[in-house]
Nucleic acid binder design. Sequence first.
DNA 1: GCAAAAGTGTTATACGTACACCCATGA
DNA 2: TCATGGGTGTACGTATAACACTTTTGC
Lengths: 233, 233
Amino acid sequence: MYTSEYPIFAVTVDVVCLTVRDHTFQVLLVERGEEPFAGRLAFPGGFVGIDEDLETAAHRELMEETGVEAPRFLDQLRTYGDPGRDPRGRTVTVAHLAIAPDLGEAVGGSDAAAADWHPVEPLLADPDALAFDHGTILADGVERARSRLEWTPLAADFVGPAFTIAELRQVYEVIWGLELDPANFHRKVTGARGFVEETGRTADSSRGRPAQLYRRGRAERIHPPLNLWGRRP
Amino acid sequence: MYTSEYPIFAVTVDVVCLTVRDHTFQVLLVERGEEPFAGRLAFPGGFVGIDEDLETAAHRELMEETGVEAPRFLDQLRTYGDPGRDPRGRTVTVAHLAIAPDLGEAVGGSDAAAADWHPVEPLLADPDALAFDHGTILADGVERARSRLEWTPLAADFVGPAFTIAELRQVYEVIWGLELDPANFHRKVTGARGFVEETGRTADSSRGRPAQLYRRGRAERIHPPLNLWGRRP
DNA sequence: GCAAAAGTGTTATACGTACACCCATGA
DNA sequence: TCATGGGTGTACGTATAACACTTTTGC
């Protein structure tokens, strides 16, 4: 190895885990127990093992620090490596984007002092709300998720294994911050090949006609992209 | 620093530099001078300096190894860090995507044995054509470039500072491998706000009516995306 | 029945494709 | 004046936004 010939780095992973809870776009954060940034909010994450691949490390850190075991989606987001981003030394972090359905209150793993969901909007508005450069990373993660909704079935990863078209529509409405026509949305989603499949079952309805339940389809891309520009004002 | 407490990594950058030359989609490669993979083709790249940020390192390595000084576009692509991707030890590489206009033959820098442009297609067809995991990286870079053409003015980065609409169309035709209607393409591109601006000058024409010259506009995204599905068969 | 939510029908308009056609130049 | 590529006009078909309307449930 060339540890004496070449610069030495520490490599970490961080996980931007997003969900929709209580009609709000939220992100999973831990309260840091140690310096630097002790007591501040940050993404779950940590050092990559010497024989561990990056995605495995991301899954492991998410599980260890928050108890979230199986996000519906997890992929690389971007790598952040500015000198000085970590006061302890030269660290490069490979940020990942994860999507989980609303899992209820019970989060919190072994390592971190506390893990909880936080609404995204106030965090985006205050660049110094999070430790390290995590404010920048959050902005990139949110942008990536918003963009992916257009041309992949990512929205289905925000809801449970069986869901109604209205639940899916609320994901778009919350994340994009606009109101969609339920009738046209229904046609677009059910008409896009491979986005959703019927289960044959219907949802319980407290009032109104019960909705059909769907599951996620096999498609990885939506053709053509869902061109949802929202309701005209 | 925690070099004794935590795993030690080497961090490199690699640059997938793409262009369109001779009506062909091409990538800039160097012939490796040393083991491992001596004599094999690889992307320009190398170790990141201890006080250097990632993008600066990418620019530097591209310049040092190929002489390409100012690509029109350079951004992170993805990070590759599987254990075992480099037989010498644990290395994480932050791959970058660069786009340059056709610069003529003269490439070749100081460090590498040789640097030259190579058509992309045969390299994609043979997964073992390149050193390390660079075949995978090339496939990701090409896919990213193809996708960006749809919704950003990336095509303008493949041509010179002043260009005709026909030159721009050829970029799409070569990279997407299809034939476009010149009339409709012209309208779409000139109609998309911020994609191109008139220069007032015209190109020299060997035959036919001389074309207007345009420069790149200020937009970073095209609304709506250029929905070019090509000429029907 | 009534309210509420799911889902379907309908229509005016916008948009895109195809291609006819005119324009400006070199030979 | 002919050939060639640049650029415009336009008709027709398809997609879609808007919203009226029907369906199916709980109360």
